[in-house]
Design a protein around this nucleic acid. Structure first.
Lengths: 250, 250
DNA sequence: GCAGTGTTTTGATTTAAATCAAAAAACATG
DNA sequence: CATGTTTTTTGATTTAAATCAAAACACTGC
């Protein structure tokens, strides 16, 4: 595997001022000066080829990463080779918080596709958190989001039947797309069936059957990785387990 | 339910200098002055009676809490009443980080027993994080621990069979006790079967059967909530999924 | 375009765990 | 301490999902 530069990598467009993700990964309410400080703290943009790793379990924590393009999966694996995928990270997501407990990553992070990430070194992270309370608040918020995401997944794995799990997943991916300004009714899955099945704690065959079932019920239409949601109401009904705090509904 | 003062509540022994948990919940390496600042930030010690709530889903985040005595469970529940227990918090544990994303708690926290908790208000938390980098680091570490704990539970729920789940749970509770200077071979479960079954994503009947099976296999001996580990080797073998980064083994 | 490889779907069968049902044990209460 | 209530265990049966097996379908590189 040669390290060929990716076509998609617009070289050195590394500016937080005009980054398309700034709404997502940056604190709102930073003034120009503060934004400059943040920007100067972003070390560089890293390119990771599909199937390559951003970090491995046990690696020293070098940085907090922000996905600019592509997709990353994180996973935990056991000595006997069983893997559990913990999360999929898409553009606008931050990852690397898992290493806070031991200064070493507790999971592996692998690119599902050619991927671009911004890197905020831990030194700079510490400095920013010390100097800019807003920045610290934003980071805390991101960490909270990570905890919340894991909690939802625990509810999914612990309480739902396989069909509900898939419905919940599709429903939240749809929500996510809406929040990002993309179509909530039609989108491509960034991961293979194998990975999604693992993430949702079921066999690939079962996942496939559930896709087929949702399609038979005219709730979705799938072809390969393209998903169209035909009946959002019934999908959300199936995924009704997905619940945010009541306050959030207001 | 009257609010009777708990017998165990040694009134106003609220000092971080001599708190028995200081080794656990406080940063090492604070000087006297810094420790005073921390101590003056701890608002008070709260008493919660068994079955009462420390906070509810949707509540504004008032504080970060540290368990001094007793036990708390956190859980997420769905509109239709399904519950998933997310964690059990024992003396020395911190909780409340779930609210970071929205300034509101995303889960319920209920006392399994009469419980004492220290409260660090969010204002004081922010101030400490700003003023004392060591304190901030310690908090980050605690948050990382929370994320790591949830990741392990995801692996447990997603990949293990029911017997392995119980073995993993018992094994890590044993580890925890060892770390805290208690017996690793004999301890009381702080929760009812119902709660443990829910936490481990299985039916109560299944959990009971797995306890019986481990007992038949002479790996443990149980009577009610008292667990004696008879064969730690085989228990850990069954729970071999529990894996920390290799670095940690050194 | 086609062979070869990996991925996904579909079908048949097995199995682990849920559910249903009831007894036994522990706990609370008057 | 006897009674009612809850919790836990044990047993029989059902069921959802895993596994096993194979076909269909995409994707790769020549």
């Amino acid at each position: 595997m040669k390290t060929v530069p990716l076509q998609s990598a617009k070289k050195s467009a590394v500016s937080c001022h005009n980054c398309s993700l700034s709404e997502l990964c940056l604190p709102r309410g930073l003034n120009r000066e503060e934004l400059d400080l943040l920007e100067s703290s972003i070390n560089k943009t890293i390119k990771i080829k599909k199937k390559d790793y951003l970090f491995h379990r046990g690696d020293n924590q070098k940085a907090i990463f922000a996905i600019k393009a592509g997709a990353i999966k994180t996973s935990l694996s056991t000595p006997d080779g069983e893997e559990q995928i913990l999360g999929f990270y898409l553009p606008g997501d931050l990852l690397g918080f898992d290493a806070f407990a031991r200064d070493r990553h507790t999971c592996d992070a692998q690119a599902l596709d050619d991927t671009l990430v911004c890197e905020l070194s831990m030194d700079n992270f510490q400095e920013l958190c010390g100097k800019l309370p807003i920045m610290r608040g934003q980071m805390m918020r991101q960490i909270g989001t990570e905890i919340e995401r894991e909690q939802m997944l625990l509810l999914t794995l612990g309480q739902m039947r396989t069909e509900e799990r898939l419905a919940t997943f599709l429903s939240s991916l749809s929500e996510r797309n809406k929040d990002r300004g993309f179509s909530q009714a039609e989108f491509n899955l960034p991961m293979a069936r194998h990975d999604l099945a693992n993430y949702l704690g079921m066999a690939v065959e079962t996942l496939s059957r559930m896709f087929s079932r949702l399609q038979e019920e005219k709730i979705i239409a799938v072809q390969h990785r393209l998903v169209k949601i035909e009946d959002m109401g019934r999908l959300k009904q199936l995924a009704h387990h997905t619940c945010r705090p009541a306050s959030d509904v207001l």
